[in-house]
Every structure is written in C-alpha cells, then in structure tokens.
Write a protein that binds this DNA or RNA. Structure first.
Length: 509
DNA sequence: CTTAATGATTGTAG
DNA sequence: CTACAATCATTAAG
C-alpha cells in the first residue's frame, strides 16, 4: 500500500486535491460530475487504483482457473487453501471492469498522467530497490547449519523427506505467490536469504554426488552403498540383506530428490511465466521498466534456488540418517556368544591387576572369540570402567572366574605334579579377584592376603588343592600394580547391605 | 511394558 | 593414538 499512497499523495499535491475517498464508486461519480480539471485527475487516479486491483484479480483468475495453490506443490493441505485465493475476495465484475478500463485508456488525460506516473516511479524506484535487500520476517532461518549431529531413532529417512518436502515447497511457493500478486509487497519481501554461501552449496552438491544421489543412474547408488559399507569397517559377516535394504532406501531418497528437483524447475519456469504475464498485463496501466522485470525474475530465481538448496540439504540429512541407520554398527549390536565372553572374562580376571592386553594378546583373544581386535578393545574398555565403577557387582563374577582359573591351574599343576615336581608355580602371572572380598568384612589386608583367601575358598569349592595357595604362587610384584583403578576410586562400592560373610553379594537391589 | 546388561560411539585429556 | 568417562541404542530378562 505504500507505493500507492505515495503516488497518490504526490499527485494530489500536484493537483491540489483533497484526500479522496478511495474505493468508493459513488464519490468517484460525484466528483466526475463536477467536471473540473483537478477533479478529473483525482478521478482518474481512483479508477487506476480500482483497476489495478481488479486487474490483478482478473489475471489471477485467468492463471489459476480452477486451482488452489496446492497445484504447485502437489500438497493436499487444506489449511492453506484460502491463502492465495484471498486476493480474489474483492474480485469485481469483469464486464464493468473492462468497460472502465477502456474508458480510462481513452481518457484525454491519460498520456499526461502516464508520464507523471513514470516520473514518480522513477523517483521511488531506488527506494524499493533498497528495501528489497532488507531481510523480511521470513521462515526457514535454519538454512545454513553446520553438520547436523546425527540423532538416531528416526523411522525412515525417505519417508521423512517425502513428508516434509512437498509441504515445504508448497508453503514457500504459496507465500511467494501471495506476495507476488500484491505488487507493492513483492519488491519488499521474499528475498532475504540470497547469496547462500557458495562453499555450503558446493559441499552439499559434492556430498550428494558422492552419495550417488545426484549422479547418474543405478551404478552410482550401489557403488556408494558399497563404499559406505566399506568405510564403516564393517564385519565381513552380515551384509547382503542390509545392503539391498540400504540401496532400496537410497534409491527412494534419490527418487524423491529428483522428482522434487524437477518439480521445482517446472514450478520455477511456470511461475516466472506467470509473473511475466502479470507484469505485462500491468504494464498497460502502470509503468514497468525492463529493469524491474529483470529484478523480479532474479528474485524468483533466487528464491527457487534457495529452495533447491534446502532440498539438497534435506536430502543430505536424509542420507546421513540412512547411513547412520544401516551402517552404524550400534544398530545391529549382537551380544557376544557365551564362549567369547567367557574367554574375555577369563583373561580379564586373570589379569585383573593389569587388565591391559597387549596388541598381540588382543589379536589372540579376537581370534579365539571370533570378534575383531577393536571389539576386544571395546570390551576391555567397557569392562574396566564398569568393573571399577562397581566392584561389588562383579565380585561374584570375579570369584567365578577365579575358580575357573584356579581349577585350570590346578589341573595343570596336578598333571605337572603327577609328572614331576610338587610345587608348580605355573600360570605365571595369573590370579585373582583381589579386593573382591573387601566387602565381606575382611577388613583390610592388602591384596595378597585377600587373594590367598580367595584362592583358598576357590580351591575349597573345587575340591581343594590347598597346596597351591601355600606354594608361593602369588608373586608380590603384581600386587602393587593394582593401581589401575586407584584413580577416581569410588568409595569402594561394596555389597551394600550384604551380611558379612556371604560370598554372594548381590548388589542388584 | 520397564529395567538391566551390554556393545559401540563420542568427546576429552594425556 | 590410547584410555577413560559419559552416553547411546539394542537386546535380554523380569
């Protein structure tokens, strides 16, 4: 409305006219009947304004014969249905309109008025041009965003994309449409986020290409899937099903992406045409410079390219989600089998004083358990931290494995003693569940005593090979190495209400 | 359903 | 790079 009022007041000043009643046909006619020159100009102005409005409506009616704006995005959202149609509300009678327009065109004052309008327009043009640059209170402020942190737990990336995008497109175009059909608004809003940083869009493009979304046909997609799987350092086992699934989903994303892209391009050209028609139509009653048209087209293209970028970004996100979903090993976690955990635990508890397996030891354990070295590392990392965090909880387990190792040692020693020497300090650096008995009320003997004690019990339980415990088996150099858990040692989480003396300290409640 | 267990990832410090 | 700590996401058990 700004431009109109500006023009109007400017002209009224020119003609010495008092404030006219805008949009009241009766008053127009009344003034007309006076037949004075000033009234004449004011009269023409009234008509121009009325016609300008109506021409818009009419043009709109022509361009959107039976459609709501849903046509653009293919959306069926009913809540926005009346939006662009709002301009239609004041739609006048076409016949009357044509008649008045004709009258205006033939008016004797028209050429003069037209030139005046041109002049004024020229003057005000730079203003609107400046205003154009100001960011409007628009949506999607979250366009550039650094790499999204992948939150998992989304059901399906393609679905997500599909549902979001047609709606988005529709909403944006609708807003633009609405703005465009109201000329004085058009130049002010609908621009805001131009110059999307080139690196950003480049990055997106690259990623889409690498992911095989925007590349050629199928070949790229599967290659990308394979590459992605390889990059994940995946286990050689399960793959085939996951891969086909992944590929299918990727193809889905791809398809959505392309169809959306196509839709945008089509919509863009269609919309450009529409606006051009509008401008051409308006140029008959209002001066429109080629520069203005150019600018308008530029704005449209910018807008659409920004939409396109959003699409790209969204696609990237969808792909990331998809990848994380299928390639993230976390998602297909399987517990290690019994035997594997047994082996690991055995090693852990027998090296409890220093549970840091060397690289070779890890490799061996990995082989024995049928898992990867890094899995072994993970396991020990988790184990250490969890053991340290709540020693009490692991007492039972510790005892159990102490028994195990004791038995093994005993067996070996038995064999050995059968063969020969009675005192067999084998199982070199093993043993045992050291502090595990602290909670039992045994206050405090350093680990040596406790270990001996534990072994006593263990050997007892297993039939008793007492001689082991007295055989100088426990080399003290190990005992002070228990410091791996001394840092941050929590107030010795011992079996909380556990009656002293019970071997089994169930801390599970 | 809730909860515990557990394998994997992420961020930080040395 | 490794270890640790916190946390996530899945699985198993109740």
């Amino acid at each position: 409305m700004d431009d109109q009022t500006r023009m109007l007041t400017g002209l009224t000043g020119l003609g010495g006219l008092s404030q006219p009643d805008v949009g009241d046909p009766d008053s127009v006619r009344k003034q007309q009947s006076l037949g004075q020159p000033q009234q004449d100009i004011g009269d023409i102005l009234q008509q121009i304004m009325a016609i300008t409005d109506e021409s818009l409506d009419e043009a709109q009616a022509r361009s959107w014969p039976e459609e709501s704006p849903a046509h653009w995005g293919g959306s069926d959202d009913p809540t926005e249905g009346g939006r662009a149609g709002g301009g239609m509300a004041g739609g006048g009678l076409p016949l009357n309109f044509q008649h008045r327009k004709h009258a205006l065109n033939c008016h004797r004052m028209k050429p003069a008025l037209f030139s005046v309008l041109c002049e004024i327009k020229e003057k005000t043009d730079w203003q609107t041009a400046n205003i154009t640059q100001t960011p409007g209170p628009d949506r999607h402020p979250h366009t550039h965003r650094h790499t999204p942190r992948l939150k998992l737990g989304i059901k399906s990336a393609p679905d997500l994309m599909a549902s979001v995008w047609s709606h988005k497109l529709y909403a944006i175009i609708t807003s633009f449409l609405h703005a465009a059909t109201t000329p004085h608004v058009l130049s002010i809003r609908g621009v805001q986020e131009e110059d999307p940083p080139d690196p950003q869009i480049m990055r997106l493009d690259n990623m889409l290409l690498a992911e095989g979304v925007s590349g050629p046909e199928k070949g790229g997609g599967s290659a990308a899937a394979a590459a992605a799987a390889a990059a994940a350092g995946g286990s050689p086992t399960d793959s085939s099903i996951e891969h086909s699934d992944y590929r299918a989903k990727l193809a889905q994303i791809r398809q959505i992406y392309h169809s959306e892209l196509e839709k945008y391009e089509q919509a863009c050209s269609e919309f450009t045409n529409h606006v051009m028609n509008l401008l051409r139509e308006q140029s008959r009653t209002r001066p429109i410079s080629p520069k203005e048209i150019e600018r308008m087209v530029a704005i449209i293209h910018r807008k659409f390219s920004s939409i396109q970028m959003q699409l790209k970004q969204s696609t990237c996100e969808a792909v990331m989600i998809l990848r994380s979903r299928f390639l993230d090993a976390r998602r297909k976690r399987r517990n290690f089998n019994k035997q594997a955990t047994e082996v690991l635990n055995e090693y852990f508890y027998s090296h409890l004083s220093n549970p840091y397996p060397s690289e070779e030891a890890k490799e061996e354990l990995a082989k024995k358990c049928g898992i990867t070295v890094s899995q072994v590392s993970n396991w020990f990392g988790n184990k250490r931290i969890r053991y340290k965090k709540n020693i009490g909880k692991f007492q039972e387990e510790a005892n159990l494995y102490a028994v195990k190792t004791a038995v093994d040692a005993a067996n070996v020693s038995a064999q050995a003693s059968q063969a020969n020497s009675p005192a067999t300090p084998n199982s070199g650096d093993t043993y045992l569940g050291q502090r595990s008995l602290n909670g039992e009320g045994l206050n405090f003997t350093p680990s040596l005593q406790l270990q001996v004690d534990t072994l006593h019990r263990a050997t007892h339980l297993t039939g008793g090979y007492e001689e082991l415990s007295s055989s100088g088996l426990f080399t003290p150099h190990r005992l002070d190495a228990n410091s791996w858990q001394d840092t941050t040692n929590p107030p010795s989480v011992t079996s909380p209400p556990g009656p002293p003396g019970s071997v089994h300290s169930d801390t599970s409640n």
